[in-house]
Simulated assay, not measured.
Amino acid sequence: MTDRVLSIPLRGAWLPLVAPFVELRRHRLLLYRLVVRDVSLRYKGSVLGFLWSMLNPLALLALFSFVFGVVMHARWGSAQQNFSLVIYSGLILFIFLSDVINKAPTLIVQNDNYVKKVIFPLDVLPAVTVGGALVNLLLAMLILLAGELLLTGALPWTWIFAPLVVLPLLMLVLGVAYFLASLGVYLRDIAQVTGILAMVLMYLSPILYPVDMVPPEYRGWLDLNPLTLPVNELRQVTLQGGFPHWGTLGLYALFAYAILVFGYWWFMRTKNGFADVL
């Protein structure tokens, strides 16, 4: 079945800026099928199957809640019942990010048959990885919604802004996935580094502790973490019932868009050499 799209003439300087979206739209049917396949294969043969996508974040939530809430008597404000929700709201964004950056460096290497044997749009592969992680993120956010409703008995209407908070992070992660997928072909050590990087990003972001606990002279380093703003903004709209900080979120979105354009450009610029290396 041919995936028909509206042909839009793109010329000059505009082409690199919109190329990722044009190509993903052009291959949207293939992308959808590969994401479904990726999600189904991930839990194929397991007894609980798709339920693992929800049990994994819940298990981490229980672990961190016990360590920081019971053992270390950590508090996030005055409401102990919200401590788990606060931790969980940040944890699900970290899981989304780490899932992608840990898989991206070996993505092309593990799918070398697409590089060597068939004519295939290789730029779809990083998007498939991000799409599979996004499915898990959406399920995790449903758990957050249900947990908040169960523990507090109400939901703030500002929940409707949650997609606007996640979208910039999605663009940034996709751009990083393009870059790492390409770099991992030429530099295999990247796959070893990303696991360490993921842990650094988690502990240097306000997932397990509030920003106020960090000495003022070190808070600037937390702001450089790509997880810090999405984590704070998601809590703002889902747990605190406040509006996003539109100006800061807009600047983050521009930065994320630049990362996406650069990552896609890098991938397309280097993909012709994949076959020679593999």
Rank of each mutant, 00 (worst) to 15 (best):
T194P: 04
R28P: 02
G184T: 01
N56A: 00
V261K: 06
S7F: 10
Y264C: 06
I259E: 02
L227N: 00
L137A: 00
L15G: 00
L180G: 10
A154I: 04
V231F: 01
F50G: 04
D123I: 08
L134V: 03
A127I: 08
L55V: 15
L34M: 15
F94M: 03
F94P: 00
L15R: 14
R188C: 07
V5F: 13
F21I: 11
R219W: 10
R33K: 10
Y264P: 05
K103P: 11
F64A: 01
G132C: 08
N272S: 12
G12E: 15
S7M: 06
T152A: 13
A256L: 03
V100I: 11
L125H: 12
A59M: 01
V135Y: 10
Q240H: 12
L51P: 00
S65A: 14
I190M: 11
L93G: 06
Y178D: 01
R269C: 04
F267E: 06
T152F: 05
L93M: 06
M202Y: 08
F96E: 01
P244H: 10
A191M: 08
E217N: 11
H27S: 02
L183R: 02
L17F: 12
L34P: 04
V36D: 13
Q236W: 05
L249N: 05
L172D: 05
F262I: 07
L48S: 01
L172S: 06
S182C: 12
V36Y: 07
Y203L: 15
A198Q: 11
A181F: 05
V118M: 10
L24A: 03
S98A: 13
D223Q: 14
I108R: 03
R33E: 12
G77T: 02
K271W: 11
P226C: 06
K117G: 07
K116V: 09
S46T: 12
L139R: 07
F179K: 02
A140C: 08
Y252A: 01
M268P: 00
G131R: 05
K44F: 10
L138E: 09
V67C: 13
L229H: 03
